[in-house]
Amino acid sequence: MKEYNIVIAGVGGQGVLTAANILGWAALRAGYKVRMGEVHGMSQRFGSVVSYVRFGEEVYGSMVPEGKGDVILGFEPVEALRYINHLKEGGIAVVNTKPIVPVQVSMGQARYPSLDEIREIFEKEFRAKWIGFNAEELAIKAGHVVTTNTVLIGALTQIPEFPLDAEHVREVIKLSVPPKAVEMNMKAFDLGIEAAKEILGL
């Protein structure tokens, strides 16, 4: 495989870096050459964050080039939209539909768009496949809101032509989380898989 590009977008503190790490390790263990890009420092403080996970023979740089992303894994709806320029035409968006409203919106300085508006841009303008669901709700169902990233990764493994095997990714999550959180994360992973299967009609 020449390259596979994942863009992970969210809000600082949501576990974007953790998710990127899990996917990166899974790709490495599957024998791929891996490149990941992230930004630390000031931008991590509850601001918008993005991480890139790339693997395959022809990846060199750490950033997914604009228009080359196979999938956007959105931890938050407007954050997914903020990085849509990285998505290729006909790419896939796996999105947690639970919004986190920025302070600027509460202060009345900006407007938070409706989910339909966001989805329309993905589907109509970028001809992307939209897989949106409330991952936070499922995470709480699994045991804790912190497993939201595991739910999303579970869903990600089900998208068409995803190069990493779900069981293989599951293994890496098992090895990555603290022992007492394994069960909860496995449940979260399964709930993510189910949610994606339902949307994709699998």
């Binding site: 931008s43 403080r45 228009g67 407007v78 954050e79 508006e117």
Partner: peptide, 26 residues
Amino acid sequence: PLNYEELDAKYRKALEIVPPRPPSLC
């Protein structure tokens, strides 16, 4: 390899509805 002008136009349109989210004090 890509029509960046077209991509930029689509992206600008998308950004119109994206509220800012600068980093903030925790």
